[in-house]
Design a protein around this nucleic acid. Sequence first.
DNA 1: GATCTGAACGCAAACGCTTGCGCAACAGGG
DNA 2: CCCTGTTGCGCAAGCGTTTGCGTTCAGATC
Lengths: 340, 340
Amino acid sequence: MTASITDVARAGGVSASTVSRALRGRPGVSAEVRDRIVALAAQLGYTASRSASSLASGRTYTIGVLVPYVGRWFFGTVLDAAERVFSAAGYDVLLYNLGSPETRKRFFTRLPVRKRVDALLTLLIPDEEESAALRSLGVPLVTTVGGPRPGFTVVGIDDRAGTESAVRHLVNLGHRRIGMISGASGPLHWTTPIERRNAYLDVLAAAGIDHDPTLEADGDYTVEGGERAMTELLAAARPPTAVFAQSDEMAMGALRALRRHRLKVPEDVSVVGFDDHELADVVGLTTVAQPVAEQGAEAARLLLRRMDEPDAEPPAAQVQMPIRLVLRETTAPPHPRGPQ
Amino acid sequence: MTASITDVARAGGVSASTVSRALRGRPGVSAEVRDRIVALAAQLGYTASRSASSLASGRTYTIGVLVPYVGRWFFGTVLDAAERVFSAAGYDVLLYNLGSPETRKRFFTRLPVRKRVDALLTLLIPDEEESAALRSLGVPLVTTVGGPRPGFTVVGIDDRAGTESAVRHLVNLGHRRIGMISGASGPLHWTTPIERRNAYLDVLAAAGIDHDPTLEADGDYTVEGGERAMTELLAAARPPTAVFAQSDEMAMGALRALRRHRLKVPEDVSVVGFDDHELADVVGLTTVAQPVAEQGAEAARLLLRRMDEPDAEPPAAQVQMPIRLVLRETTAPPHPRGPQ
DNA sequence: GATCTGAACGCAAACGCTTGCGCAACAGGG
DNA sequence: CCCTGTTGCGCAAGCGTTTGCGTTCAGATC
């Protein structure tokens, strides 16, 4: 078996408490002894058992991260960045992939993170019941995506402004039949699709364009969903000349559908996405860029800071990261005669 | 504070041992008592402290997963699938994102998973020293990617066959100047790029094509790297008419570079990738498809199985998943006059 | 030189669980 | 009716740390 603290203590001719204090840099140990113990521990390959130390101290040095879909670019990128910050600070991360309703439900009823984490970062939006469950854990909570929520610090972007810049761009190009591919079918408490939809409607209204419900379709935030949605839109009585997709992945699905229909982008149909996906540049997609990795890193830093200052009152702060419209090759003025 | 096992015991008028046995379905408890305790525990919202139980039992119900880059599609997808299998089996996953050499080194010297996990899934290839460190943990080890390794069960694909199908496809189309974008700059012990390179060389040799070293470039397995590599190849005295990229992400970077150089794909240059990335279809990329999520799931299942049967002798098995060439729109016979 | 002070260290009690063992109580076989 | 099993449960000893408190001792203070 691996060495325990008493092995080190015995070998060093000191008590276990001294070893503990020496290794964690606590006061009450002379410099010579400390150095000797540190060297000895390294030599013996000693690492404190996390279970034992967290049992004794109540701290776990572990942070839970809740993710809807690790495989999706957005979440993977956020997680990647957050993990770097956490591990640099000496924390381990416990990952929960809560994509399906069943796993999600099971997680919130069993709450396996109880007494296992010092803090929680959630990349999904808990509903009222779920956030109550998380608050009951009594650890700092930070979430990316979504609106303000009591007890949570949230870091995100200005969805409204982002959407406005995208749709206005299409309006300014001269488009009047502007479709939208959204992710409306998600959980109702997820405000992002709603925010973006409202902004979309507002821009149209401001431009004096009547809203046409047949120009909206659900793309489920996936490539396939985007493809289906675009196909749906193309089947409308008067198909759109431009489409705003609420995510780049859906936009790429739309591009695929358009190619299948032998429609040219941007000549026949303009497409603008949201996210600035790593591959958006490859397909030349015009999109609303948001700093994805930075959001993860910032959220992680905020969480660490909140752990340091255990004020009773959680700030419930909201951090907004900058967005900007990136013009590429999928948008252009409408074709004089429209599609088909 | 949250309820402890003694709280439940007291409330139920039994001993803590009985509560422990009842909740974990151990024998030695009558059916009535068991039901009563289970109900009581649920009512009190009791969950056993993982630190305490793992300290006492030595089992952690946690599986460590080592990933080079969570944000990359391949690894994100594998992780996603593996996590589902683990969590369905009641295990938590501890994630280590070991992209940079420093974090990787720190991980292997400090080995924070010691006594923290019951098993380890690594999505990276440990070198000799690293695998020795992992073996010293005394837990089952499974790895995806890479060649056979003592103590490890590995699930992967036939890199050689995959590469051969891709390069042969280009040869069959009539190409003679076939470039390759690889990830050769990675750690030397990573055999994948080497396997693929050897297969590439073999196919060329079999076709009677002399190997031209200026037709090889390093793409670092990233989009940007692929773009740089393609740019490099295009600057060669005699640029290739076709390129095999060892990953789809590099292939997409190559596509971007080609677009920047106003070269048409596949008219001027053919491109074939490897992986069948989620977005490969969107850009019409011809590629070697491998079942990525299935590899993660299969690796996870193998790991669980090995945990169930604690045979002294690890099987050191190797599982190979099927691959197939997917023809899309980035490959065609060479242009009669070649590029430029 | 007696007293005080602080630093450096050891003791032992937690932390919350698991588990080997012991001990009733009870059943059934002789 | 005794003996041997079996079943159901409690006791208590860990598991490997952390940490409050007590002790020792060198040096400073008067």
